[in-house]
Amino acid sequence: MQPGLDPREMRASDKDRDRVADILREAFAEGRLTPEEHAERLDAVYRAKTLGELEPLVRDLPVAPGVAPQVVAPTAARPQHTPATQPPPPLVAIFSNSKVEGRWRLPDAVNAVSVFSEMKIDLRQCEFATPEVDLTANAIFGALELRLPRGVVVRSYGVPLFGEYKVEQDAAEESGAVVVNVRGVALFGSVKIVR
């Protein structure tokens, strides 16, 4: 870190954003955030460029030690690396229609939310970084459709509340296949996982 640089001005990483998104997901599941607050904060998470922008989004929520992005000066310089593929785009649609597709590296935890929107996410060209992925898919007065490649094992834990949470399964599970754990809620909306 450069001398005199405020730690809050440090650029946030994808991992920092994912940790904050996980905190918000837990707070939403526990009833600490309304659907509107959750969607608003999640949108801000994926627009945040610095750690200082992420910090206020979880300041009023209980956070396990080491989970929130730390706004402290690092003791050693961090190694720089260039990913083989593009990082994932923000998977948020609020009062809009959105389609996300292309080749990017899928991290071990992904959050997608559609609020009063129609969103289509195509993951068939994605590179899976880990053998197991936790995918949170929430549709609030909206529709969210995720396309997964064939051969991926899907385990659904989604909950429909006055809506539909539908997962299209493959005929047979392949041993050694990537596992995608789908969680979330369809509140007056629909979530569909298709092949």
Rank of each mutant, 00 (worst) to 15 (best):
M1L: 12
M1W: 13
M1D: 12
G4V: 05
D6A: 15
D6H: 15
D6E: 11
P7I: 09
P7Y: 14
R11H: 03
K15F: 07
R17Y: 01
D18H: 07
R19M: 05
R19E: 06
V20F: 05
A21D: 05
A21T: 00
D22Q: 14
D22Y: 07
I23P: 01
R25E: 14
A27L: 10
A27H: 04
F28P: 00
F28S: 13
F28E: 12
E30D: 13
E30N: 10
E30Y: 02
G31E: 06
G31Q: 10
R32H: 09
L33H: 10
T34F: 13
P35E: 11
A39N: 08
E40N: 07
E40K: 08
L42H: 04
L42T: 13
D43W: 13
D43C: 08
A44K: 14
V45M: 09
Y46I: 06
R47A: 11
G52Y: 12
L54T: 01
E55N: 00
P56V: 01
P56E: 08
V58A: 03
V58W: 02
V58H: 07
R59V: 00
D60H: 09
L61Y: 03
L61R: 10
L61P: 03
V63I: 09
V63Y: 04
V63H: 07
A64P: 00
G66S: 12
V67Q: 15
A68D: 02
P69I: 02
P69G: 08
Q70K: 12
Q70L: 13
V71D: 04
A73H: 07
P74L: 08
T75S: 14
T75P: 05
T75D: 12
A76R: 14
P79T: 11
H81R: 15
H81C: 02
H81S: 15
T82K: 09
P88C: 05
P88S: 05
P90A: 12
P90R: 14
L91R: 02
V92H: 04
V92I: 15
V92Y: 13
A93E: 11
I94A: 06
S96R: 11
N97L: 00
K99T: 08
G102V: 02
W104L: 01
R105N: 07
P107N: 04
P107T: 03
N111V: 09
A112R: 04
V115W: 11
S117V: 02
S117C: 05
M119T: 12
M119K: 11
M119N: 10
M119E: 14
I121N: 12
D122W: 12
L123E: 11
Q125E: 15
Q125D: 15
C126A: 15
E127A: 11
F128N: 10
A129H: 02
T130M: 08
T130Y: 06
P131I: 03
E132Q: 09
E132D: 04
V133M: 10
D134C: 00
A139F: 09
F141M: 11
F141S: 13
G142H: 06
A143H: 13
L146N: 05
L146H: 09
L148P: 06
V152K: 01
V153K: 09
V154M: 10
G158R: 04
G158P: 03
P160G: 10
L161N: 14
E164V: 09
Y165T: 08
V167C: 11
Q169F: 09
E174A: 10
V179H: 01
N181M: 03
N181E: 06
N181H: 02
V182I: 08
G184V: 06
V185H: 10
A186N: 05
A186P: 07
S190D: 12
V191N: 06
K192G: 00
I193Q: 00
I193T: 02
